[in-house]
Nucleic acid binder design. Sequence first.
DNA 1: CTGAATCCTCTGCGATACTG
DNA 2: CAGTATCGCAGAGGATTCAG
Lengths: 118, 118
Amino acid sequence: MDCETKNFQQEHKKEMRAVQDSMDVLSGKWKISIISSICFYNKRRFSDILNDIDGISNRMLSKELKELEINKLIIRTVLDTQPVTVQYQLTEHGLTLRTIINNLTDWGIAHRKKIIEK
Amino acid sequence: MDCETKNFQQEHKKEMRAVQDSMDVLSGKWKISIISSICFYNKRRFSDILNDIDGISNRMLSKELKELEINKLIIRTVLDTQPVTVQYQLTEHGLTLRTIINNLTDWGIAHRKKIIEK
DNA sequence: CTGAATCCTCTGCGATACTG
DNA sequence: CAGTATCGCAGAGGATTCAG
């Protein structure tokens, strides 16, 4: 393998790794949807997210939110209302996902059209 | 709930659904990586994809490729070499994922930096 | 309201081996 | 090389109940 070809390969290896790094944090059935919900509304309470996402259980939502918090993508804030409510918002780092969310939204709409028109 | 608030809510409901439509097709541990591999190289053979992605088994690759083909994201082409090789490439529709792939790549790189610097 | 805890089910996915 | 067939399991995820 000549040098050019080798560099070509390695360049893409790096990109592949980057994609996989993203997926490590974002993959799973719910993460993207949860982030989207918070992203669209800026701030969002637990029960609201629960309503936004069709089919998710509170058990799952709780677990996923915790992971997202550990990964520094969202911030959890307890409001001292009665009864207690909890608000989630994206961190600055989490906000950098906004582009991806928007792309996914657009693509989802386009994809649905594509499927229906068949 | 007043009318403005209601429209506000429904607008986002629609976006939420769009995101979920995307995820229906793209979620899972491997799909995005597979599409990325094909996307980066334009055309890619089975065994090459197998090498690009760390940890995937041929069983999984085969299954995922089939699903992507059903969803009209990739095209399978059998080349009459000896022994047979099979080439995959993105459809026009699949190519519209390029933006998302690129964003995921960039985000993955940024995220890794973020994690390491802590 | 926002979870944690428990229990149980189901399936995504890995390992391995075999075919054209 | 590009799959298919089988087997088996860990962990994802549902339902329900309890707690602060």
